[in-house]
Design a protein around this nucleic acid. Structure first.
Lengths: 352, 352
DNA sequence: CAAAATATGAGGCACGTGTCTCAAAAATAA
DNA sequence: TTATTTTTGAGACACGTGCCTCATATTTTG
């Protein structure tokens, strides 16, 4: 049997224009324009007639033409913490890559470094953003009343604002990032599976436990461990504060005082320092190690077998998703829903 | 410290137009157009001058304006196998979702069902596609000389063609899908981890082993198992041919004749039938089960704990990536490289 | 009822590029 | 040199929408 299928062409695939709309609704193009762009001074009855015509014809505004007419540009700023761990460097790399990828879509991406631990300075940065300068903002900063309010005010000024990686839960807008509690649970499940029935305790290393993200991650981790791996006990989080000296001290101390450690969970996105320290301390080969985020370092550790698994969010997806969503907000797109959800990825040696 | 940053605005962020290009190169807009669109009859020296100006100004063609001028549309066809397993249904669902998402970009997606096991009919379908009907084609069909040639001829007719999910390796174009060998290896690694040191054999269930995809997956699976889990032995693949009766028979027979089975690997994307049969046969709870692809069925099986893990490719990403790539080819975009690579996902209960 | 306010229409220009045509200039051949 | 061919320029129109002005039609108010 021949599977020939003739595709509908020409007329039927020509999308209706505002002119068609005007004719169908029995109004002028000017009125159609007034309705489409929600201008004042149109009778409700007329608005309804136009909207009905939109429905019937399946009219979709030609965003390209509209952007052309408006000389619309998409100037976006990624506001990222100063501190330059490798994960952040990956993010920056992808932002720079995106510049080329989205250049054809009239998207500009700029970087701004903020002092994420100083809400005051972050807020003042946000205040400095005018809608004549940018159309959108993706911001990675810990949740703070001050910052949250500043973000709301940015939005009120007509700028699309999107929490990025760090959620701002009170801001019930959508955001780009993963569910940290689920990420922690995934780490626990993966870790538990690798431990494979042995019993003992897990060392948990974090840069700091002050942010909501860290706390959620830890909570998700503990819950999963308690429920499904009763033989594995999570130790209190060791906080390195990003300080290598301190990290070395507390990690050795932790190992000495807990001889039953069967696994180590490096919870923060800066995995390099703790992992390097652990390498120096030559642990038994059977000690399971799980970390977060894919960086050149964690990737090669995984390949070398000195790391069992990685729970990660795809830096490229994060960046591109943020751009597409900001663009969607500017274009007044409807629902972006699940399609842009960031997955919690599990990376093993075989699926890098 | 206040983190005020003033962003460069206006002129500097106005992308140069063809008019600017013409002025910079000291030629007319007509000549710029001739160079940009590779028309004949321009002296090499002039071409070089224009190209130099493009470099210097960092000119990027405004695709939106160009498309508007050309009334460019993107009519794409997804040619998919008739057989309607759940994974394929997911793909179809995402294609339909994409219609709305990409409508604003003037993208139409059509579906065509092909008889994937009849290369002759597939080729004749491909022959029927004219460049006046569609701009791009994503095709999921097993590799065959006949099909491969037909695809090449489709491309020669000026239609963007992209192997979709099923690779056509001899066609050294890029494609959208995952490395099946790595996917198999990942399944093995995950399975081995879950088995956790026990020894025994693995039942491998597949719909059929005729396609290259299946063979590669199996090969990747075996290699990983042999290298890293010497205590686990992979049994010969059981082929169901999509027939439930047959599946039931061979699975029970397999279980009876191999009492040391510690794990089951459902290799094909149609996991529902084998898994339902396995549920009926109440195996020991400790039997590890790994399958491929996320569908409503496998998802709930994972949630219920009757499945240990899933190795999947994100159906939504596959579809959207295919659309973006076809669009890229039509627009003569440069390199899409790694940014659109489809990941091999590991799904556990916690990261659904 | 007239006067004022509101609603709609007609038409034009702009956005950046593609695609024509026709004329002029430059290079090449005779 | 002149005749011919090749290369370039100038200009116009189109694409679909946004945005503006001004005039006319319709409704509301006093």
């Amino acid at each position: 049997m021949t599977e020939t299928k003739v595709f509908p062409v020409q007329e039927s695939m020509q999308r209706p224009t505002t002119k068609d709309l005007a004719k169908a609704a029995g109004v002028s193009r000017a009125t159609v324009d007034r309705v489409l762009n929600r201008r004042e001074g149109v009778k409700q009855g007329t608005v309804d007639r136009v909207n009905r015509a939109i429905q019937e014809l399946g009219f979709v505004r030609n965003v390209q033409a509209a952007n052309l007419a408006k000389s619309q540009r998409y100037r976006f700023v990624f506001a990222l913490p100063k501190s330059g761990d490798q994960f952040l460097q990956e993010i920056v790399r992808h932002i720079e890559e995106s510049r080329d990828i989205f250049a054809a879509d009239r998207v500009w991406c700029d970087l701004a470094h903020i002092d994420e631990n100083d809400p005051h300075s972050v807020a003042s940065f946000l205040r400095s953003l005018g809608e004549d300068q940018i159309e959108g903002l993706a911001i990675m900063a810990p949740e703070t009343p001050q910052v949250r309010d500043a973000i709301i005010r940015v939005q009120e000024r007509g700028i699309a604002a999107l929490p990025f990686i760090s959620n701002q839960p009170l801001l019930n807008a959508d955001w780009v990032g993963v569910d940290n509690s689920a990420a922690g649970a995934t780490a626990a499940l993966l870790l538990g599976q690798c431990v494979g029935g042995r019993s003992g305790s897990v060392m948990v290393i974090s840069e700091s436990m002050t942010s909501r993200d860290s706390l959620e991650r830890r909570r998700g981790f503990d819950q999963e461990l308690i429920q499904n791996f009763p033989d594995i006990r999570g130790l209190p989080s060791l906080e390195t504060y990003g300080n290598e000296e301190r990290a070395r001290t507390i990690i050795s101390a932790g190992l000495n005082s807990n001889p039953d450690i069967v696994a180590i969970y490096v919870m923060s996105s800066e995995a390099r320092i703790p992992l390097e320290i652990l390498d120096d301390l030559n642990l038994p080969k059977s000690t399971v190690k799980i970390a977060h985020e894919r960086t050149p370092f964690t990737e090669s550790a995984l390949r070398a077998g000195s790391l069992n698994g990685l729970v990660a969010q795809d830096a490229g997806h994060l960046v591109r998703s943020a751009i597409r969503r900001l663009k969607g907000v500017v274009d007044k797109h409807r629902s972006f829903g699940a399609q842009e959800k960031i997955r919690i990825e599990i990376l093993l040696r075989t699926n890098l």
